[in-house]
């Protein structure tokens, strides 16, 4: 087996697995009951899914310049996605978009309720 065939095989495996993870994420967004639970689906399998797809592309394209670009995409995705999901999660929790009946432990709601009168802005 030649080196290119091996690389193509790895690329195919990575691309298919990554695409499957993206599919599971889509199912999760449809199926889960509230915003926060959906956020898990919308943001998370993508981390590994996207990384696998980028690795797959790297193995298939085999061009140093492109690989640098792919690494950049991976880096920015990893740095920015937690911030986006945090902002959405924080806003939806404070707006009460949470199915509290599905929480087994909630250590934040009471704390926020105590603080609310003191918040000026």
């Amino acid at each position: 087996m030649s080196w290119t065939a091996l690389a193509d095989g790895i690329a195919a495996a990575c691309l298919v697995t990554g695409a499957l993870l993206a599919l599971v994420a889509a199912i999760g967004v449809l199926r889960f009951p509230d915003v926060l639970t959906r956020m898990h689906s919308a943001t998370k399998p993508q981390v590994l899914g996207l990384l696998l797809i980028l690795v797959g592309l790297g193995f298939r394209l085999r061009d140093p310049g492109t690989i640098g670009l792919l690494a950049m995409v991976a880096l920015f995705q990893l740095v920015t996605s937690p911030i986006a999901s945090h902002m959405v999660g924080r806003a939806s929790f404070r707006a009460g978009q949470v199915r509290r009946d599905l929480l087994v432990v909630d250590e934040l709601t009471d704390l926020l309720a105590d603080e609310r009168p003191r918040e000026g802005d």
Binding site: L21, V24, A25, I27, G28, R31, F32, P33, L36, T37, H40, S41, K44, P45, V47, L48, G49, F93, V98, L102, L103, V104, V105, D106, E107, L108, T109, L111
Partner: peptide
């Protein structure tokens, strides 16, 4: 951790017969 947790989350997603029991912890 990312690989293990991705598989877990995928499994929780596909287990249609059970609602996830979540938590908010400090």
């Amino acid at each position: 951790d990312v690989v293990v947790a991705s598989v877990e989350v995928a499994w929780i997603t596909l287990r249609f017969w059970r609602e996830p029991r979540n938590a908010v912890i400090e």
